[in-house]
Design a protein around this nucleic acid. Structure first.
Lengths: 210, 210
DNA sequence: GGCGAAAGTCAACAAGTGTTGGCATATGCT
DNA sequence: AGCATATGCCAACACTTGTTGACTTTCGCC
């Protein structure tokens, strides 16, 4: 066996850690509780991961694995992106760990920034969009807000949505953040930003209506 | 004078508590730190508020004070609502306290639900909308996601937006959640939404399944 | 003034935290 | 076999947490 015995407990510690961090957040997830979940002594956790912080760092390793948006036609890009994000969220609880912890833990917040701004922005740059950072940020607001309400705060109307419903509702929003021209207020600001909105970037149509 | 001396310290405790809870979250905000900020003894906090939980409950008292949407024409409702929410957020740090704590504290989460689902939904019912709860939930996702990225996670592109920029970007989103007819069909198929995740997204290869 | 209550201080408790070192056991190698 | 090493458990440490009770000061009022 190339598999050592320690690798199994190492992995079970990590699994228990993910669950606890995801359920309780960083501070309330204690080493002792994690160890108990893994049916092991707390000292083992230290032996394998050195400290609580390092254990957390290992448990919060994550990659969004974005699809290449150049491959899909522009009108579908929003929907494809939303579906990818939601499904990614559903399949990997690491994101929930990150979301729960990022609110009080600076390291987790930094990783969140790396993922949602640092990985999205260059993807939009490659697709030759203007203001890629702002668009990435806006999409992050909608995606993270959805996840927050669905998985963490558990707002009933949002928890009750099927994946397809969610995609149908959020798709046009993401699409607009992706493709809409920048609304009136200029970044340099030498124009009055009291300029009210020109109100409508291209009207958002019902999903699938193209 | 009807004003007792104790009221002042009582208030200063509350102010310090709000700041600490908002900056550190529930667990990391210690009674001792709060007391130090208010320049008093930790025992005073207990004397005045009984326990940490009760102090938190007092610090997280909040009301969104929604505008009556029946007063504004439908096309402007989204923008009015967004502007109100953002400004409300900017002026009162209680919301930040709630957001930071709701992620790990069940009592705070419950209050969040009361505010964002419990107060928004009836407002939409009064305005005679269909699916008021879902619309309220969706609006909460965008509003909370924006606040999360702007005030807690501090995504640079979002922090950099002016209030007017933010309203211009988010306005149409909220407006659509407010007024758009309920979307029904998944993108390229015409399946009912009772279909769970059995449906696979069209062109992009779906992993697993079968 | 004096007196009672309010306001504030101090030290301590009991419980829980991350973390450490010592000691037992199993495991693999020759 | 025997030995070295990996693996695991136990008890304890130093520290922080919320919370409590006894003690001292300050204040308002007769």
């Amino acid at each position: 066996m190339a598999e050592k015995k320690s690798d199994r407990t190492r992995a079970s510690i990590l699994a228990a850690a993910r669950e606890r961090f995801g359920a309780d957040g960083y501070e309330r997830a204690t080493i002792r509780a994690i160890a108990a979940d893994a049916s092991i002594d707390p000292a083992m956790v230290m032996r394998y991961y050195g400290s609580k912080e390092k254990l957390f760092a290992a448990a919060a390793e994550f990659d969004v694995r974005l699809p290449d948006l150049r491959d899909v036609p522009r009108e579908q890009a929003g929907e494809v992106l939303v579906r990818h994000l939601i499904e990614r969220w559903e399949e990997d609880d690491t994101l929930r760990v990150l979301l729960r912890t990022a609110v009080t833990n600076e390291a987790a917040a930094e990783r969140m920034r790396q993922v949602f701004v640092g990985q999205l922005t260059p993807a939009f740059e490659r697709a030759a969009m203007d203001e890629p950072a702002v668009r990435a940020g806006l999409i992050a607001t909608q995606a993270l807000g959805f996840a927050l309400c669905r998985y963490i705060l558990e707002f009933e109307p949002i928890v009750g949505l099927s994946t397809d419903d969610a995609v149908a509702w959020l798709g046009p929003t993401i699409a607009r953040y992706l493709t809409s021209p920048v609304p009136s207020a200029p970044p340099t600001g030498h124009l009055t930003r009291c300029e009210r909105r020109a109100t409508s970037p291209p009207a958002t149509a019902a999903p699938g209506a193209t």
